[in-house]
Design a protein around this nucleic acid. Structure first.
Lengths: 159, 159
DNA sequence: TGGGATATTATGGGCGTCAATGGAATGCCC
DNA sequence: GGGCATTCCATTGACGCCCATAATATCCCA
């Protein structure tokens, strides 16, 4: 498996450390990245995280804009400027920075959510809400679509 | 890691010295540059800083203009003319010149912000404003995009 | 198929190292 | 000699690294 899938809820210990789920670790290992690249999600109270795949996605995104353009500066600031590469200890744990925790409203429990090439870290309650809202909209969209054609939804349901 | 990422806020001591964040130092070391190349950012109250990578970027930028053109002269003056190479002491600290500090409105606290191939040094409050403004515009841009293409985006979330 | 042996995971804690910071001492220039 | 700046050392708190334990999942073999 080379994709982040499923969701796991884990606790932070007294030092603020939290284990990266083993299945996610193995994806990171395959990706060949030391540490965990992460940043506050732009439009959600959550943390985006991943390895090389995520970094190069961001690099490509920024690289598309012409150098010195306002747009590029903005992206570089919001993405590079807020990114961190967390160290992973021998047991596969990381400590989230205060900035990241504050953005996601994380105290001492988090849920990891696989999104394919990257994953998200949520405060569990907020994740439940997000998930409920997403499935809700997806259902509505799907029933709307299926009356016309299913062409835009090759994967069927996705939870 | 060979990029400047994340942001760190540090204090100047009574002699005006400030530590370059360790993660930035390691990037500079890999870049193989003694000292810190910096100059006042062209259109912002901040200081641009970096190593060889930054210097060659500037060289390329200026090289694009035709020799002796007004534009080239202006850029050369604004960038080369105002650049300084700060010495890094044994503990990884630099002393910002008064010119640089005045340009950025820096007193005794600064935040270092990674931008990939270079980093910026801000007065913390101004940095917060700049970051807030950038993420704001990015969010607007993104919702504009997703309202058009969401229906046929099988991957769901898109950043 | 059950049940025990084994491997792996999540979690807790101790300890040494390093980064950030402050201050002293030394050298240099006017 | 007085000020300025650079180099050196000292402190403190955080962090990385190591080992220990418990719970779980996995495997293996009767």
């Amino acid at each position: 498996m080379d994709r982040f899938v499923s969701n796991i809820t884990l606790r932070l210990d007294s030092k603020g450390r939290v284990s990266i789920p083993a299945s996610f670790r193995s994806v990171l290992a395959r990706d060949g990245f030391e540490g965990l690249y992460c940043y506050p999600a732009l439009d959600r109270p959550a943390i985006d995280a991943g390895g090389h795949a995520l970094m190069s996605e961001i690099e490509a995104l920024i690289g598309r804009f012409t150098p010195y353009s306002e747009e590029r500066e903005r992206f570089a600031l919001a993405l590079y400027g807020t990114s961190e590469t967390l160290k992973i200890d021998g047991e596969g744990r990381v400590v989230l920075s205060d900035t990241l925790k504050r953005h996601a409203g994380i105290a001492d429990v988090v849920t990891f959510v696989g999104l394919g090439h990257k994953f998200r870290i949520w405060q569990p309650g907020r994740f439940q809400n997000e998930l409920a809202a997403a499935t809700q909209k997806l259902r509505a969209l799907k029933t709307g679509l299926s009356s016309q054609s299913a062409a835009c939804d090759p994967s069927g349901a996705r939870e």
